[in-house]
Amino acid sequence: MLEIKDLHVNVNGKPILKGLNLTMGEGEVHCIMGPNGSGKSTLSQVLAGRDAYEITGGSVTFRGKDLLEQEPHERAGEGLFLAFQYPVEIPGVSGNQFLRAALNAVRQYRGEDELDAAQMMKVFRERAKQAKIDLASLKRSVNEGFSGGEKKRNEMLQMAILEPRLAVLDEVDSGLDIDALKIVSDAVNAMRSAQRSFLVITHYQRLLNHIVPDHIHVLVDGQIVKSGGKELALELEEKGYAWVEEHTNTVAG
């Protein structure tokens, strides 16, 4: 469902991704781990279509279509969701208003009928219940005055309501205490299904105690240098990223 081939990306003229390859199937959970500055967040932003990133080579295919050709909102319409590392505040716009607009926009993109406010509320309740997240935050302005944990939980609520085909979680665990981490990972686990894939991007192994991935990839200096099963995380935890880097250098040398 997602195929990234030899992706090269520059930021401010400086190469950040240097030939990244990744293939994900339907319903799979992949995790990308890597040290700071390895290009993890660049990857998530490029997938969602942020400007400022210059794609100098390679291709990305999402559900059979060229992803890089699409506008950000079209990617959302195709079923791509990005849980932001730093969710943005939108003063004066309530979560309800925001998600109603978003869900209807996505439905419109897919040629489905728009829902009225009552139908919307029903959908919100069902999906929030399924993801075990409280709806109360939707009464407040989007992310305004939210704590770090509330913001991340709100991202999960949006994900539950928008029901993406691919959810990219960008450092969703950063700055969370253990309780918040549990809420976030419970939501992800509740939403795992054969039709939904997750790309979990993280620096720390601890998230993977809660969300168990099918595959782990290690990103170092803009390339995936090692891939494996969930046991790879433990190895990394024990030996650190330096081990992979050294290992790679040895292989390359």
């Binding site: 909102h73 959302a76 319409g77 939108i90 925001f98 978003a102 993109y109």
Partner: peptide, 11 residues
């Protein structure tokens, strides 16, 4: 802000 809203599906 714009990117965040667009990512959720609004043009």
């Amino acid at each position: 802000q714009l990117f965040y809203v667009q990512q959720r599906g609004l043009d």
